[in-house]
Design a protein around this nucleic acid. Structure first.
Lengths: 151, 151
DNA sequence: GTAGGTCCTAGAGTCCTGTCTAGATCAACT
DNA sequence: AGTTGATCTAGACAGGACTCTAGGACCTAC
């Protein structure tokens, strides 16, 4: 049931360096135990916590903020409202990120649509006229087309 | 119609430092023009492009990738397929980010729900017994509760 | 007993994205 | 004339999150 740092690295996707770094930064709730020879010993629950940790990180919570949360947990009972506050703030933050990305996704879809048309038109031009003259179509126009997609 | 760097900073939300930095990094499609005294002159279309730029940045496209795109644009017609490829990749990337954040949001909601219950229970305990004894409820349990929310 | 693989620590290095500083120029008020 | 405020350049500095290095220990297998 004991896991070595290499094992945890393999299963969590973090590097052993990152695991030691996270430990130094105080991101483990229960301090990592050691064998008599100094080697770290992890358990399944550490992997579970790491999975959450990675989710928090990938959703934009900084290492410092995660430590803030863990510090509260370590402080024991009595600060649950604070933890809840922190979690709620991050929840709101994630929701805001999603909204923003959805707008961006629409912008990207529109830009891609415009470019697809442009490329299709280019292909058509080429079919008609294999020497594909530039005919006044320059990069400035394309940029304008791109910008139009954002409005 | 001409805009100073300060004006653009104010309206774009970027700092003047960042604007000069973006220029050095080649993020402007049409090179920024100068007055005879060396000061930069911007126009509305620069602001429009900056708005897109900020969207690309905030959706995780690196400065280097944006430059890659702009380099294609500057190279003129003929590489539209490449640009389209690049835009599509980012579109997919944004879609993936949204999916991931939606999972995270669910996890957060669950954690918040569990904590709300926990806090409510704590309040109830306190009502029953104002000296709020710890009664075996320690931080380890809370962590386990948190982790449970992620499975 | 020695080669290979995993691990340890402390601390240096890297990459990205800005941000800030110093010293100079220029235009506009007072 | 002097002060203020915006701008310029080149380059130093910063912060976040790793990533890597050096030098050493330890275990296993051949």
């Amino acid at each position: 049931m004991d896991l070595s740092i290499g094992e945890v690295a393999r299963r969590s996707g973090l590097s052993v360096h990152a695991l030691r770094f996270y430990e130094r930064e105080g991101l483990f709730a229960n301090p990592v135990r050691r064998l008599s020879n100094g080697r770290r010993v992890y358990h399944e629950e550490d992997l579970e916590w790491l999975a959450i940790c990675l989710r928090l990180r990938s959703s934009g919570m900084s290492v410092a903020m995660i430590r803030g949360y863990i510090d509260l947990v370590r402080a024991g009972t009595g600060n649950e409202r604070e933890r809840l506050e922190l979690l709620r703030r991050h929840q709101d933050d994630v929701a805001a990120q999603i909204r923003d990305l959805q707008v961006t996704l629409e912008v990207m879809r529109e830009k891609v649509r415009v470019y697809e048309e442009h490329v299709a038109r280019g292909e058509a031009d080429r079919l008609w006229n294999p020497s594909h003259p530039d005919g006044g179509r320059d990069s400035a126009e394309v940029i304008r087309v791109c910008e139009a997609a954002s409005s």
